[in-house]
Amino acid sequence: MARLVALVTLILTLAAPVEAEGPQRIVSLYPGHSENIVALGAGDRLVALSRSDDDGLLPDLPRLSPKVGGEALLALAPDLVIARSLVLRLNPALEPTLAEAGIALLCLDPPLWEDFDTYLRALSTALSADADEAVGRAASLRRALADEAESRRGGRPRPRVFIEATEKGLHTCAPHSWAARLVTLVGGENIAATEGEEEEAKPLMAWGIERFLKEARLGLDIYIVQQGTMNGATVDDVRRRPWMEPFGGVKVVAVEEGLLSRPSLLGLERGGRELIDIFYPREESLP
């Protein structure tokens, strides 16, 4: 219950009531929110995104820092700003600035896999969109990805997979994380599938080389390098590591962090299909 309370934190200033059809000028300060707003059909209402948003998503819109100043933000004349709690911690002036201007602020933290439907309902309500339709779309997408993966697998063994989240200390994605659950959804077997109680609330966990080697010697098919702000390692970097020498036959691939770990409908579809292509390549793409 505590997790859900943290997940759906509504900070709303309604001095200026939102119209019945929903907010018409939205600023999104987290990429996951932006992608879900677009997926829910409200992308034309966005007037600015965060600097962390993908370059290809609504490229003509301005990109804002988490510490965006009040003057720059108010100049966009938004009627709703959607952020996450990290943004509010980085920019403590944001909430009082918006409150003084009578602009609604919605704070939603990135959801865990099992909380995604709750998150979609909260976001849909803020947009005056159909929450049941959004949740149904997510369910259909999960089923479609699982079915496609099973069809593409065609009786082949499920691949044993390791996800490198950060090179330093060799951190991996915790079994409850979005990335690990996506790997499982499309038929992968995560070799780092155990975690301690102290790690349950964290999306990443320290794994270490010795632990990796112990599990990998039992079988490893695919080594995924999650590339992003926390990990700049390349496929070549991984292959050059001395402790990877025994695993020369393992497929090492790089996947962009936003595809693997960003909770969004767009990320779910694109990331799921990317993993399916990695796990079960079509015959024409085999060497």
Rank of each mutant, 00 (worst) to 15 (best):
M1S: 14
R3D: 15
L4M: 07
T9N: 14
L12F: 01
P17Y: 02
V18Q: 13
V18G: 10
V18T: 15
A20T: 11
E21H: 04
G22N: 07
Q24T: 13
V27Y: 02
V27P: 02
S28R: 05
P31R: 05
H33F: 00
S34D: 04
E35C: 02
V38F: 01
L46T: 07
P59R: 06
P59A: 05
P62H: 11
R63P: 06
E71I: 03
V81C: 11
A83H: 13
V87T: 15
N91C: 13
A93T: 12
E95T: 03
P96L: 12
P96Q: 10
A99M: 03
A104P: 05
L105P: 11
L106K: 09
C107W: 00
C107M: 08
D115Y: 09
T118E: 13
S124R: 04
A126F: 00
A126Q: 00
D132Y: 00
R142M: 06
R142F: 02
A144D: 10
A146H: 02
D147M: 05
D147R: 05
A149H: 04
E150S: 12
R152L: 10
R152Q: 13
G154W: 02
G155E: 03
F162G: 06
A165C: 09
A165W: 03
E167C: 03
K168Q: 13
K168L: 13
L170C: 12
T172E: 11
P175E: 14
G188E: 03
I191H: 09
A193R: 14
L204C: 08
L204V: 09
M205L: 15
A206Y: 09
I209N: 10
F212N: 07
K214F: 14
I222M: 10
V225T: 07
Q227K: 14
G232T: 11
A233W: 12
D236R: 14
R240P: 00
R241V: 03
P246A: 02
F247S: 01
V252Q: 08
A254I: 01
A254N: 00
E257Q: 12
G258W: 15
L259P: 11
S261D: 14
R262V: 05
L266S: 10
L266A: 12
L268A: 06
E269P: 00
R270A: 15
I276T: 06
I278Q: 03
I278N: 01
F279C: 08
E283Q: 14
P287G: 09
